[in-house]
Design a protein around this nucleic acid. Sequence first.
DNA 1: CGTGCTGTTGCTAG
DNA 2: ACTAGCAACAGCAC
Length: 280
Amino acid sequence: MPELPEVECLTRAVRQTLEGNSVGEVVFFRTNLRTKIPVQAFTRLFRNQMVTKVTRRSKYMLWETSKGTGIFHLGMSGNMLLFDSPEPQLKHTHAVFKVINQQDPNAPTQYLHFIDPRRFGIIDCSERQDLAKHAYFRNLGPEPLTNDALGMHLFAKSRRKSQPIKSFLMDAKNVVGIGNIYASEALFRAKIHPVRKAGSLTKKDFSNLECEIKQTLQEAIASGGTTFRDFRNADSNPGYFAVQLRVYGRSKELCPRCGHKILQKKIAGRSTFFCKSCQH
DNA sequence: CGTGCTGTTGCTAG
DNA sequence: ACTAGCAACAGCAC
């Protein structure tokens, strides 16, 4: 499930399936997810329209047609899976999209299922051209993987902030896509203590952190790409990739770098894992 | 059986 | 202005 690497891999899989094809019927089994699904508008946007682009911004997946953009978010437990059947195959299936294969009309019809047990996900759409100004996106910080001045940006934004660096990293106004797991992981790798005041970090700290954030996310995407390539497989079940997490979920185990015990502590209500002997 | 956690994020209250 | 806390929900470990 969905931190940025999971959303990125799922977006790539959906891109393979959907780009250049169109969505046929859409069936909604429930319309009250985190927000109300605009069924009418959504149908107008996709009926007999080719999906020209499938992209990711932050943890949102976007499906573009000439009429507008479908906006999807997986929340905490969302997933998309491809099946040969239009009937729900799993509990908590909220929507099914028929995929019209333009290239090969003889190929068996496939159906993209949207599943989300905790219903914290979003299915929405917009007709506007300047999507960046949409309420979902207008306050978002830069993408961590493609921004080449990420360290400097974070340094500038963090001046005079007393907030713990971990919370600062998880705030999408500063940088998107760093969730609870990868915040602990990136800070461990950068040897920075999670409760340090964001404003106390130096330029050098942030340039180091930039590298570790990028590597952590990229490794997760690389390892997820293989597990996820085939998402027409109910076993590609919601669950994190088989990346080795170095500290997350490993309290009381030994630090892989120095052998001290890994600690767990709540920061802003979220479990945080770190090694107090090698993170300063 | 409860009870307390869990991937997100936008709103509220201090 | 900043920051912590909470709510929306199902499922799972204990």
